[in-house]
Write a protein that binds this DNA or RNA. Structure first.
Lengths: 148, 148
DNA sequence: TTGCATCCGGTACCTAGGTACAGGTTTACC
DNA sequence: GGTAAACCTGTACCTAGGTACCGGATGCAA
């Protein structure tokens, strides 16, 4: 007998290749709840329905839009149990606000950097330039290192 | 005798408090080579010169400008052994280019997000809207998650 | 000299999103 | 039936920038 599974099921390696992701990533997403646990062959190998490939491209698209994996998981979740809210639109709008805030931060940083260049600062610690703009204590601290 | 150390040396806790950083962070920076190993009291406690506080604010300023700790360490380093190059200006200019690239990325993402909102997408996986723009396969993959 | 705050080194843990490796099984093909 | 590729679980590791905890030692003042 060839296999208990007769549908067009895919093996994990095939899914990973078609979706362009690492095999480990596939299992990582399963642990994170982004993709459902697939059925198994008698020997324990995963057998995926072909839609899984589509799902993975959608996950990657959402990531490119700036959603975290947790947010993506929630979006998939609310979408699965008959969307009670038009969640995606609201989330996208919130994400736009986040992106705008980040752009504003970066613009402020950019301005400060141009000041460094314009003033001719030549050292972080012993700058000899007149009117040295360092340090930028007004620059919102703590924002830069976090929130991609 | 009060202490072998007679200068206006500061204890680690004082430095940390004045610079507004965590005590652990201080030792972390020492390990990373951002601040020099200070002299010690006879019992092994660190005794910092007061300039250390200034140095820490400078480090924090550079971080706010988007420099990584490694870059900050290099900037301090080249500055210490008589700047052979006007390194800071060049680095600041390179950083401006990085910031610009990041802003361009975010702008692209923003555009895509507005498309999602405008098209009225209602689900990541089963969007029913006409001309659904998902997935944005053209959106440069891999940029978003990395490079703060 | 006693008591308590502070500091010490070393190690483990955190986020976020994966990636890699080891050692053992299963599948697939000839 | 043999063999090689693919797959399995579990665990450790990676970046970047810290933070937290532990048990023990030190500093300082009354």
């Amino acid at each position: 007998m060839k296999q208990d599974i007769d549908g067009p099921y895919l093996r994990s390696g095939q899914v990973a290749e078609r979706a362009g992701v690492n095999l480990q990533t596939l299992r990582y997403y399963e642990r994170r709840g982004l993709i459902a646990e697939p059925r198994r062959s008698p020997g324990g190998h995963r057998a995926y329905p072909p839609e899984t490939v589509t799902l993975l491209t959608v996950i990657k698209a959402a990531q490119r839009l700036g959603f975290t994996l947790e947010e993506v998981a929630e979006l998939i979740d609310t979408g699965r149990r008959g969307h009670p809210t038009p969640d995606l639109r609201a989330r996208a709008q919130a994400k736009i606000a986040e992106v705008d805030a980040r752009i504003a931060d970066l613009t402020t940083i950019r301005t400060a950097l141009t000041q460094v260049v314009a003033a001719g600062c030549d050292s972080l610690t012993h700058c000899t330039c007149p009117d040295c703009p360092l340090p930028f204590t007004d620059l919102a601290a703590g924002r830069t290192p976090e929130e991609s």
